[in-house]
Design a protein around this nucleic acid. Structure first.
Lengths: 256, 256
DNA sequence: CGCGATTTGTGCACGTCTTCACAAGCGCCT
DNA sequence: AGGCGCTTGTGAAGACGTGCACAAATCGCG
C-alpha cells in the first residue's frame, strides 16, 4: 500500500540512520498516533488534519503537531498529513519495520492471558518463546507455543534474537528472571511484577502494575469525595460546580 | 495492625478532611512507596530513612522526601520515617482505608486473568462484579464470582457502590461500556482496551495498553541499535562507551 | 549539658513539557 | 495570475517536575 520510497532515513537516502533523539513524552504518544492512523486508514481516509488526528488520539492538536514535527515528518500546509506516509514514518521511528521477537517469562494467570493476546501479533511483535520456572507447566501448549523451562533461556536466545523480555512472574522471582534476561543480551524489559527491578545501565525497563493504576484512581475518587463533602462553608467562591471544575489530569473529558 | 489513632485528617482531629491537592507526579509514586513500605514492615523494620525507602522504591531520595513532605508527613530528622505511620498516612491519602469495589467488564482473555489476580484483594480492592456482553459467558464462575450480563450493570451498581470500573473488552465495545459505567455513576475507569475513551468532565480515565509499552521499548531498541551502528566516524568525543551513556529515561540502572 | 553525627524538609536553579498564537506555505477558485 | 481560506510548523511564555545543596531539627554519647 503506497510503497512510496523505502522507509529509511527521513529525507535523503543513505544519510545517517540515527534517530533524531525524540523527547520521551513524544515517544510515549507516537504509538497512540499510530493506532489512530491505522483506524483512519481502515476507514479509507487518505489524509488527516492535525485536529482530526489529535481528536482520534485524545490529545491537543498543537501537541500533536509539535510531536510530528519532531520527527521531521512532512505534512502539507492547507491539507494535512498523508495517512499512509505518516504510518510508515512512525513505524520506522518506532523500529517496527522489523517484527521484534518477545520472550514471555511466567505463564501463570497473567502470562497465560498475555500469551493469548492478539495485540502482540497485530502491532508488530511476535512471541518467540514462552518460559516458566515451574516444571509442571513446561510442555503445556498455549496458543500454539510450547512452554519451555526458563533455564533454556540461553538456548532460546541463541536460536533467535530476543528484542524484548516480558516478565509476568510473581514479584519474588522477577529480579532473578531479569538478571537472566540481561545475561542473554536482552536490553529491553517489560515488567508486570509488582517490584522494582535493578538492571545495568543501558537496559530499559518499563513497568505495568495494575494495583498502582487502581490506587491512583482511588486517590482521585477520594479527592472528589472530599470535595463534594464540603457543602457551602462560605468557600472563597470557587466551590459548588457539581461536576467539579478541577481538571484532575489523566485524561478527562476527551471532548467529542 | 498498629491501630494508632484512627487515620484521618493529618494532625488535628476533626479538621478539614480535604486532601492537600498533590502534584500528579507525586500521586503516581505514592503507590510505589506504599508497596515498598509494606515489604519493609514485613521484614520487621520500624523506621526507614529517605535513602532506604527511595532505594526500595527505585527513585531519587530527594524526590521521595519532597513527595512525602507534600502530604505533610512527619518524618523525624536524624532518624527517618516511622514505617507503620507512613503506611497509614499514604493509605489514607490514597483513599484505601475503605476497600473499594471494582466492577470488571469483559471476561475474555485478559479479563479472565484480571479476575483471578491476587493483587486486587491484597492491595485494597474487591471485585464486586464480573460482567460480559457475551450471553454464552454469563453464568460462568471465575474465582468464586458469577459472570453476569453487562445489562445488569444498573442493578449491580444499586446493590453496592462501585468505585471503579475496569474495561477489558475489545476496543469496539469499550466506548459503549464506558458510557454505561458513567451512566450508573462510576467516575473512575481503568481502560485496557486499545482505544481512546470519551467521557464527561469529572470522570477519570487511566489507560493500560500492552502494545504501547512494547512499542516504546521497541523505539529504544531501535535507537540503541542505530547508535552502536556508528563505529567511530570521528565523533565529537562522546562516542564509544559500549554501555551507552545516554540515560534514556524510563527507569534505568536502579543501583543497589 | 553540650556537641557531633545524622537525616529531614526545602529554597533555588535547571531542564522538560505544554499551550498559545501567529507567520509561512499550500491548494483552490475565480 | 492573484487572492483567499485553510493547515502546518514553530517561537515564546508559562507550568510542571527534578535534583542539588544546605539549613534546621533530632538523637545519642560523653
Amino acid at each position: 500500500m503506497s510503497q512510496h520510497r523505502h522507509p529509511g532515513a527521513p529525507g535523503r537516502a543513505g544519510a545517517v540512520p540515527a534517530l533524531p533523539d525524540l523527547p520521551e513524552a513524544t515517544v510515549a504518544r507516537l504509538p497512540e498516533y499510530l493506532r489512530a492512523l491505522h483506524n483512519l486508514a481502515e476507514v479509507g481516509h487518505e489524509t488527516v488534519s492535525s485536529e482530526g488526528l489529535a481528536g482520534a488520539a485524545g490529545v491537543n492538536s498543537a501537541k500533536l503537531r509539535k510531536d510530528l514535527s519532531q520527527l521531521g515528518s512532512y505534512g502539507t500546509r492547507g491539507v494535512g498529513y498523508d495517512v499512509a506516509l505518516l504510518i510508515e514514518q512512525i513505524e520506522y521511528v518506532l523500529g517496527l519495520t522489523q517484527r521484534r521477537a518477545v520472550a514471555l517469562v511466567g505463564v501463570g494467570n497473567l502470562g497465560h492471558a498475555l500469551a493469548g493476546y492478539d495485540g502482540f501479533a497485530s502491532r508488530g511483535f511476535r512471541i518467540a518463546a514462552l518460559l516458566d520456572a515451574d516444571r509442571s507447566r513446561v510442555g503445556e501448549v498455549i496458543n500454539g507455543l510450547v512452554v519451555r523451562h526458563v533455564d533454556e533461556l540461553p538456548r532460546v536466545a541463541a536460536e533467535e534474537s530476543i528484542a524484548i523480555g516480558v516478565i509476568a512472574t510473581p514479584a519474588a522471582a522477577a529480579q532473578a528472571v531479569a538478571d537472566q534476561l540481561v545475561t542473554v543480551g536482552v536490553t529491553s524489559i517489560l515488567n508486570f511484577a509488582p517490584c522494582v527491578l535493578s538492571v545495568p545501565e543501558g537496559v530499559d525497563v518499563r513497568k505495568v502494575d495494575l494495583a498502582i493504576e487502581l490506587q491512583i484512581l482511588s486517590f482521585h475518587e477520594h479527592r472528589k469525595a472530599s470535595l463534594t463533602a464540603l457543602p457551602a462553608t462560605g468557600g472563597s467562591g470557587l466551590t459548588a460546580l457539581p461536576g467539579g471544575l478541577a481538571a484532575t489530569d489523566t485524561q478527562e473529558a476527551i471532548g467529542t
